[in-house]
Computed example of a mutant assay.
Amino acid sequence: MGVLDAIRQVLGLGAEADATREADPEDLFGMSTAYLTMEADLGFAPTGDAALCFADVDSTAFRRAREEVEAVLDLGEAETGTTADFVEDAHGYHWVVLHDREFEDLVTSVHFASDTLVEEGFGSRLLAALFAFQRDGRTAYWVYSFRRGSYYPFVPTGGRERDQRTEFKLESVLDGELSVEDDTAYWYPLWPEGDAHPWG
């Protein structure tokens, strides 16, 4: 199985059949308090970056929905200063990449973007939302899987290695504050390209 097929299976079609609960963009607001715990209890500070990953659809209706997301985020930038970039990764997945030093504004913007796609009838195209944190030069992510309706931690260490000890520590501290995926088979690694974020 290739990397692209694995992503589809874990975050996409396979996970949809195995979903433990219905995903809800409101779950994203759990990060509004979890980031405080990440910093106070674990020493991981927000990097000011978050992202929303989705699968594109070659249709006029989806292009309109994407334009609506862009319009919503443009309005948000005027209010909060959150900037947004739209990028495509090496696997053909699309990302809305958000930047803001105010973490709660990031959470709100990711919610607005995902909720807009849901309201436009494209919630099934949503794959994951990522929130980035850093400690001592190491980046850790909380990943929200829309197909599983749950979060999981991901801590890449370079190459195709991950720091599972830190991931389990994050789970033990944040479980209960976030709806953490209890089946680690679904803690899918979203490998970054080099030292970049998973979205490139």
Rank of each mutant, 00 (worst) to 15 (best):
M1D: 10
V3E: 14
L4H: 04
Q9L: 09
Q9K: 08
L11I: 07
A15W: 01
A17Q: 03
T20G: 15
E22I: 07
D24C: 13
E26M: 08
E26L: 13
D27Y: 03
D27H: 15
A34S: 13
Y35E: 06
M38V: 00
M38C: 05
M38R: 06
A40M: 02
D41A: 14
F44P: 02
P46S: 04
D49M: 07
D49V: 12
A51K: 01
C53F: 09
A55M: 12
D56Y: 11
A61R: 14
A61Q: 14
R64Q: 14
R64A: 14
E67W: 08
E70I: 07
T83I: 12
A84Q: 03
F86Q: 02
G92F: 05
G92Y: 01
G92I: 05
H94R: 14
V97D: 05
H99R: 15
D105M: 07
H111L: 08
F112T: 05
F112V: 06
A113C: 07
D115S: 15
L117D: 05
E120A: 15
G121V: 10
F122W: 07
R125L: 05
L127E: 05
L127T: 02
A128K: 01
L130I: 02
F131A: 14
D136Q: 15
Y141K: 09
Y141N: 01
R147G: 11
R148D: 07
R148F: 02
G149N: 08
Y152H: 15
P153M: 10
P153S: 09
P153H: 04
P156T: 02
D163N: 12
R165H: 11
T166S: 01
L170D: 00
V173Y: 01
G176T: 04
E177N: 07
L178Y: 01
L178G: 03
S179P: 05
V180L: 14
D182V: 11
Y186P: 02
W187Q: 00
L190D: 03
E193S: 13
G200I: 06
